[in-house]
Amino acid sequence: MEGEKIAIDYDRVDVARIMEQIKDKTAAEAAVEFPARGTAAAPAAGIDFAAGLGKGRRVLLKIMSPFAPLIKLFILPVHEELRRAVLILDHANRRIDRLEKERERIDRLQEYTKLLHHLCHNLVVEISKLKIEEETLKTKARIMEKDFGFLEKREKALEKDILK
């Protein structure tokens, strides 16, 4: 349990810095803790790591230090972390599913909007055509009215000529 001392600047205490040192200290120890636990059930290499063997222990620690993260992964109670990670992933997954459905819905809406746009465009074209046609028909009607007026006058003139 003894180990390097944790350096603290009391004038400016930084919790993050203290925790980094604690983590560094305990990470090295975690490498020892794994075989120590193992020896309790079955003394694998015949060395009691928990008791500490002075120089031999330090040498072993040094040799094992590159594997510390891996050992930590296997021995630390990561199940809680894993459970939480799985839950977060599950939520993320559901959210992605929902977003995917939402995207499909938006795609469909986009297609529908395009169709509506075409429809509007065609309606505008048709209405324009109808408007032009209406104008033409109005003009034709006016011409016919004039022709009718002329024919009326002519009819009256001819009637006068005949009655004379």
Binding site: V13, V15, A16, M19, I22, K23, T26, A30, L76
Partner: peptide
């Protein structure tokens, strides 16, 4: 704890013991 610098924290037993 980090924002306040008012406490230490732990995840595992060795960290609990050290803190």
């Amino acid at each position: 704890c980090l924002r306040s610098n008012g406490g230490l924290y732990y995840e595992t037993y060795p960290e609990f013991r050290e803190a």
